[in-house]
Amino acid sequence: MNPVSYQRASSLSEAVQMAETSRLLGGGTNLVDLMRKGVEQPSRLTDVTALSAAIEETGSGGLLIGAAARNSTVAAHPLVRTRYPMLSRAILAGASAQVRNMATVGGNLMQRTRCLYFADVAGSRCNKREPGTGCDAAGGFDRYHAILGASSACTATHPSDMCVALAALDASVRIAGPAGERTVPLVDFHRLPGDRPDLETVLELGEVIETIEIPASPFAARSGYRKVRDRASYAFALVSVASGLTLREGRIDEARIAFGGVAPKPWRAHRAEAALRGAVPSAEAFMAAAALELADAAPLAGNAFKIELAKRTLSAVLTDLTGDDR
């Protein structure tokens, strides 16, 4: 790890000021690891964990979560558990209890891919680390890589569970910067790689994540998060599905679906949602919607199984959510 200086931001404006010349440090669960590996080499760190960690209701029945709130705090919060159970479940599916106690919501949004070649500074080329140098994941171990939204430059996936639920819940990200504040829908917060896989989010230099806002949700009763992985716990997703829906007169009124583990960003399944609107719940309808969403999937040598896995997992989640016992 390179020598680094450490400072704490005590206010949002201070953080914005410091952000121009330093890297922001939340729980450190990803950044410190990447610094030790040499992937990240900041010379200055700004600890932003003293910024708002509040979880409070908005006037419109939604929820506002401070970027410094710990993942575990969000998952255990009564309002999250009762109104957005899929978010609780998604957070609880991620990492370990220790990591969730450390990781902040803002940091979770900013976490970087777990691509093995991205992490291997000494031995592998990576366009995300050094644009234009090449990608050794191509032709290498790509089992965890993307089937949707990737580019020839980069096929790495975004590893977050929490963000998958936030994408399905139409969350938005409040950002403070030198030029003032702005709000970005979470689904637009992360970029697809294109030819610049190093640019992972829309954050500009000096910008700081302030809060996450989740609008009021009618999905609490019928929502869930299912994660499929290589171990029963404490492993990144091969495929995950966050979904919530409402029924009216035996038909699906509205469905929200997002995939994790299949794309460079949390993958909101707009096509599948559209296909399901007004549909009578059935295994056939679910599989058809899943197939539509995955029609453009581009498998790599080692991850073609994800297409079938994603379809089946989505269908199973929807079957569960539309069951009579809900």
Binding site: L25, G27, G28, T29, V32, L45, Q98, V99, N101, M102
Partner: peptide
């Protein structure tokens, strides 16, 4: 690497990984 839990300590009563905590 934040992957094994052997370094777990309590920080203000919460369990955390001391290897990824500066």
């Amino acid at each position: 690497q934040g992957a094994c839990g052997a370094c777990t300590v309590l920080l203000d009563g919460q369990r955390v990984l001391s290897c990824l905590t500066l």
